[in-house]
Design a protein around this nucleic acid. Sequence first.
DNA 1: TTGAATGCAAAGGATTTGCAGAGGC
DNA 2: GCCTCTGCAAATCCTTTGCATTCAA
Lengths: 171, 171
Amino acid sequence: MAAELNKSVGLTPIEMARTAGQRFEDYLQSRGMRNTEQRRNLLDVVFSSHEHFDADQLIEKLPSKGSEGYVSRPTVYRALNEFVDAGLLRKFELEGRSVYEHDYGYPQHDHLYCSKCSSLIEFQDDRMAEIRKQVAAEHHFQDRSHRLIITGVCEPCRKSRRRKRRRVDLI
Amino acid sequence: MAAELNKSVGLTPIEMARTAGQRFEDYLQSRGMRNTEQRRNLLDVVFSSHEHFDADQLIEKLPSKGSEGYVSRPTVYRALNEFVDAGLLRKFELEGRSVYEHDYGYPQHDHLYCSKCSSLIEFQDDRMAEIRKQVAAEHHFQDRSHRLIITGVCEPCRKSRRRKRRRVDLI
DNA sequence: TTGAATGCAAAGGATTTGCAGAGGC
DNA sequence: GCCTCTGCAAATCCTTTGCATTCAA
C-alpha cells in the first residue's frame, strides 16, 4: 500500500530521500542549524523505507554504538522532532508510543490498525476530506489536520485465529 | 454538545451512573471481583459529568488523602482500566496521555481537538460509519472501532488570537 | 573561531507493579 | 476465613534535558 501511494506521486524512495534531504537542508539553513553527519544518517535510514516506525525501531536500524554511523538515542529523538517540524514526517500516538510516517510529498491517507499484530494498513478515501471540511465549517473550527484510525483485526490475523479455534474445537 | 448527545439517548447523568453501576456490578460478579468502596467512589465521580478527562483530572476531583472517599493513584489507574474493559469508558491517546470518555449508553461520535486550548468538541456524522464499513470490507478487515480526531483551532481561540494580532498591528 | 550539536548520564512524567496489610463476600 | 483489593514505594517505559566536549560553518 505504501508502494501504491508512492507510485501515485511518481517518486522512488531514493528520489524521495533526496528531495526530503533538500527540504531539510533548507529548513536547517533558514534556522542557522547545522547539517551534521548524524542528521544525514538518520534522514537516510528514515527514507530508506516507507514503513511506519517508532523511535526504537529506527534505532534498531542504525549501526550499534562504536560502529560508523552510530547515532545516540537523545539525538534520534531530537532529530525526529526536527523532521516533524520540517514537515518531513508526521507523528501520531499508538498504544502510548509515538509512531512516525513519511509526510513530505506523500498523499493524505488514513489507517487500519490491527490490534492482534499491530500492523498499520494505509487507505485513502476522498470522502474524509469532505467530511472534515464540512464538520469544521459547521463548528466554525479552523481545521489543520485529521487522524483517523480504524481498529480491528486484519485478514491474516483473522485467518490464523480461526485456525487456532478450529484446533480447539477438534479436541 | 455532550448534553445534546446525552439527550438523544434519553438518560440523565444520574440515570447513566446507575445503569453504568449495574453494568459494572455484573462485570465484577462475573469475574469474582469485589464491589469495593473505592470502585464505587470512582464510578460516581466518573459519571458525575460528561466531560473528557485524564487520570490527573479525575484524581483532582477526588477527596484528598486523609479525607473520606480518598482513592490512591494506583487504584485510580487500575479502576480506569477496569472501566474500559467493562465497556463503561473509552480511552484514547492525546498529546502523550490517556484521555477517557463515557462509552456505555453513549452514541458513537468523533472529535474536533483545539491545539490552542486543548478542548475537545464532539460531533456526529453518519458518513463515518459508512466509510469505515466500506474500507474495512475492501481490505477484508474486521473493524471493531474507529477514532477520528480533527485538529485545528476552535472558534473562541481563533477570535482571541485575532484580537491579539490586532493589538500588535496597532503598535 | 564560535556557537550549535552530540553523547553521556540523569531527570521527567505517565503508568504499572510487588508486596504487606485491609477488607469484601 | 479466604482471597481479592488497596496503598505504599519503587519500578518501568518512553522521552527530554543539563552539561562538557566535539564539530560544522
